[in-house]
Computed example of a mutant assay.
Amino acid sequence: MPYRRVLLKLSGEALMGEQSYGIDTSVIQRIAAEIAGVVAQGTEMAVVVGGGNIFRGLKGAAAGMDRATADYVGMLATVMNAMALQDALERMEVPCRVQTAIAMQEVAEPYIRRRAMRHLEKGRVVIFGGGCGNPFFTTDTTAALRAAEIGAQVVFKATKVDGVYNKDPACFRDAVRYDRLSFQEVLRGELAVMDGTAIALCKDNGIPIVVFNLFEAGNIARAIAGEPVGTAVHPELVPH
């Protein structure tokens, strides 16, 4: 594997599969199996999970909830997803730890950077739940922040689409997918890779991002093996 340590960002929506709500256990099991295969090859893996399959703070705020309260509810949803993924990994005998930015010691460890890095060095998968512990920040920003903190070489964002497009492929049949982009191109074109704070964190710390389709079997392993999957966003300008 070309990467020693990586961070995988899983959207909450991806975890519900074809369902309209909640967790699709078959999807979780498939993801866990792919992660297990990657870890067996010697790659150290951390995971950040979203919570949009259960609750999304922005939607709660739009419905009249206080925005900070809605975001905290969303953080709790990410912990539920983290625990479900941990269970699936442990069933496959993959050592795993959940760390949360909001203390809940009965079900998970508190997020401690050095402890997380020690787990990774010992071959354990570390799943970060609870976002970054603060409202008004997305789990994309959490992924970029944790990647910088633990020294990850790349952020892999697994989604329902197969890369970054110049416009929404679900609405426009002539949407064009990019194979490679620079951070400057992403910011200049306001492309939907991650939110602006996450992009700025990765750009400032020289951490590349790879966006790919989670639902194509084997894509996690292919992406981490360095194969051209989805769209790669690099710190420097990349000639097309």
Rank of each mutant, 00 (worst) to 15 (best):
H119A: 15
G129M: 06
E121I: 08
Y111I: 06
G64C: 10
V125L: 09
M92E: 15
M83D: 01
A88Y: 05
E90G: 09
C96Q: 07
K122F: 14
V94C: 04
M65L: 15
N53T: 13
E90Q: 15
D66H: 10
R114S: 14
K122S: 13
R97V: 01
D71G: 12
Y111M: 06
V126R: 03
A101E: 01
R91T: 09
A82D: 00
T69S: 12
M80P: 00
C96Y: 05
V94P: 00
A68Y: 09
Q105C: 07
I54M: 15
T69Y: 11
M75E: 04
G64F: 10
T100L: 04
M75S: 05
E93L: 09
R113M: 12
P110I: 06
I127G: 00
E109S: 08
A68P: 06
N81P: 08
F128L: 13
G64H: 11
R91H: 08
T100Q: 02
M80A: 08
T100I: 06
K122H: 15
R124H: 13
V94Y: 00
G57F: 01
Y111T: 10
V73A: 07
A103C: 09
A84Y: 07
V107E: 02
Q105Y: 12
I54G: 04
V94K: 00
C96H: 08
A68C: 10
G57L: 01
P95C: 14
E109R: 11
V107R: 11
A77S: 10
V98L: 08
A61R: 01
M117D: 02
L120K: 00
Y72L: 14
L89W: 04
G60V: 09
R67E: 05
M117T: 13
L76W: 06
R115F: 01
G123V: 06
F128H: 06
N53L: 08
K122T: 10
L76P: 02
I54E: 03
V126L: 13
G51L: 01
L120S: 01
R97I: 02
R91W: 04
D71E: 13
E90C: 11
A108G: 08
L58F: 11
R115P: 01
M65H: 07
A62S: 14
R56Y: 14
R118K: 09
